[in-house]
């Protein structure tokens, strides 16, 4: 599975818990309040554990976490 699929599944199952089962990779996760500040911490921890990618603190910004697609593109740089 690629980053996009894994992230999408994690967000749907662990962070949304059925609240938005039709989440798409292009959906805005942040402006629409799909993920809150605590959810971001969980997501970063998941990325570290699942992909063995250490996300630098200064990279945890809107531009890199806005959607699953944007986040996947960002992670592809590692």
């Amino acid at each position: 599975m690629n980053h996009e699929t894994i992230l999408l599944e994690y967000i749907k199952q662990e962070l949304l818990r059925g609240r938005k089962s039709d989440l798409k990779v292009e959906d805005d996760l942040l402006s629409n309040g799909i993920i809150d500040s605590l959810g971001i911490l969980q997501l970063v921890a998941f990325i570290e554990e699942r992909f063995h990618i250490q996300v630098p603190d200064e990279d945890v910004v809107f531009e890199n976490f806005q959607s699953v697609k944007v986040l996947s593109d960002y992670l592809a740089k590692f």
């Binding site: 500040s37 603190d57 200064e58 945890v60 910004v61 809107f62 531009e63």
Partner: peptide
């Protein structure tokens, strides 16, 4: 730090 990185800082 970057604009918008304050929460993580």
């Amino acid at each position: 730090g970057p604009v918008g990185a304050g929460a993580n800082i």
